[in-house]
Amino acid sequence: MLESLKVKIVEVAIKAENYGLCKEKAGNFSIRDKDTGYILITPSGIGREELKTEHICVLDLDGNVIEAEKGIKPSSEVLMHIEIYKVRANVNAVSHTHSLYATAFSVANKPIIPIVYESVNYGGYVDIAPYERPGTLELAKSVSKLLLDTDACLLERHGLTTVSNDLEDALLKSRYVEEAAEIYYRSLVLNQFKEPKAVDIDEFAEWKYPEEIKF
Rank of each mutant, 00 (worst) to 15 (best):
A89T: 13
L61N: 08
L21V: 07
I46A: 05
G124A: 04
D169I: 13
V107H: 13
D60W: 08
L154Q: 07
R157M: 01
W207E: 09
E69C: 11
I41L: 06
E17I: 08
Y19G: 03
R175C: 11
M1A: 13
Y176W: 12
A180N: 11
E83I: 01
S30E: 10
K141D: 07
K86R: 10
L148Y: 04
G37M: 09
L137A: 12
A170K: 11
E54S: 12
G20I: 10
C22G: 04
E212D: 06
V199M: 03
A198L: 02
L79D: 07
T150S: 14
P43V: 09
R157I: 08
I39S: 02
V177M: 09
F105A: 08
V107C: 15
D149N: 13
K173P: 12
A93F: 14
D62Q: 13
L160C: 00
E203N: 08
L61K: 13
A129D: 04
S106D: 01
K173C: 06
L190P: 00
D33H: 09
Y122C: 03
I128R: 08
K70L: 05
E77P: 12
S119R: 00
I201W: 03
L171W: 14
T136D: 06
T136A: 06
D200W: 02
S4R: 14
V94D: 07
K110F: 13
H96G: 03
G37R: 11
L146Y: 07
R133M: 14
N121C: 11
E182R: 09
L171C: 12
E17G: 09
V163F: 07
T97D: 14
P43L: 08
I46N: 07
N64L: 09
Y176N: 08
I39Q: 04
V10Q: 12
I31Y: 02
V163W: 06
R48N: 15
V163P: 13
S144W: 10
S187R: 00
V65L: 10
V143P: 07
T136V: 09
E77C: 02
A16C: 11
Y125K: 12
I31M: 04
P134T: 11
I72L: 14
D127Y: 12
